[in-house]
Simulated assay, not measured.
Amino acid sequence: MTLTAAAPSAFAQEPQPVRLLVGYSAGGPVDQGARLLSVALSKELGASVVVENKPGANATMAGGEVARAKPDGLTLWFAASPTLTISPNVMSKMPFDPPRDLTPVAPVLSYYNVLVANNGLPFKTTRELVEYAKRHPGQLSYGSAGVGSSNHLGALLFSKRSGIEMNHIPYKGNAPAMTDVIGGQISMMMDIISTASSYIQGKKVHPIAVTSPQRNAMLPDVPTLAESGIEGLKGFDVGGWYGVYGPKGMSADLTAKLNRAITAALRQPELARRLKELGYDEWLGEPQLLAERAAKERAMWATVTQGIVVD
């Protein structure tokens, strides 16, 4: 499949590059996923797929630019679920309305987080962390990709359900937050398993627990939060996903062709193997599947985010 075949009116004989926007800084997990997909997708489309980082405003800057773009398939958004399911609940001025202003194109991946802590802290397990936090209320801090991000709210949910008090320090992406966990400027953070694993294997941070209901194959020795035996953490299950979106007004034909190209890219053996190694779960399907999951989780997070407002 080539871009010319996908949209004759938009692409000449020499296909134009496709911009794949990412709402976070380079080096973080969303950027990593987008860059892996871009290489495989370029082969399927017969045109370059160029990743552009547009961090800021809970990743809504990238989404807003896509929402304003021409619906010709040349500008797409590699979106992480928080911007579509959490941000609409917490931002006082959401620059676009996801269901109204975007076209779902394809689901890509689902993932879970791992709670990691600075190596110098005197706890190694969830129970030890909770006991320490109760003895030192307000002394522990956790970073996130921003107010209202999934790892902010995941850590907030953890602290509430375990009955502890921690200070939230927001960043413009996971990568700078991880840097400060390693350096000791903050105590801990929840990070996507795919990117946190290299820091764990390099012994730069200590893994406390994963946020999935079962242990992750990439970190088999790291327990789940639910395994801690703490009553409030029973059944703890907080994850996220990535999907590709385009501007509103994209034709059904173009959307379907891009969906098929993305699905084919994700099925390329090298990419499928690499994503599995990184701890991601394959999530393939039609655009409607993406729309339905976003709507369901947007309603779910609305019950958790009450009182949180991002200007």
Rank of each mutant, 00 (worst) to 15 (best):
L3E: 01
A6C: 12
S9M: 07
P15H: 03
Q16A: 15
P17R: 04
V18R: 07
G23E: 13
S25Y: 09
S25L: 13
A26N: 08
G27V: 10
P29A: 15
V30Y: 05
A34S: 05
L36E: 02
K43P: 04
V50F: 06
N53A: 02
G73N: 09
A80F: 05
S81R: 11
L84P: 07
T85L: 00
M91Y: 08
M94Y: 11
M94S: 14
F96G: 02
R100N: 12
V108R: 00
V108H: 03
S110I: 00
Y111L: 06
L115P: 00
L115D: 10
L115V: 09
G120E: 00
T126V: 15
E131N: 11
S141I: 01
S149F: 11
S150Y: 03
E165K: 13
I169F: 07
I169R: 14
P170L: 04
Y171P: 04
Y171V: 06
A175W: 10
G202I: 02
P223S: 07
G229W: 08
G232F: 10
G235D: 15
G239Q: 01
G243F: 06
G243H: 07
M250W: 09
S251H: 07
D253K: 09
A261L: 03
Q268L: 08
L271Y: 07
A272C: 08
L275K: 04
L278W: 01
L278M: 06
G279H: 02
G279C: 02
G285Q: 00
E292A: 15
A294I: 14
K296Q: 13
A299I: 09
W301E: 03
Q306G: 11
D311S: 11
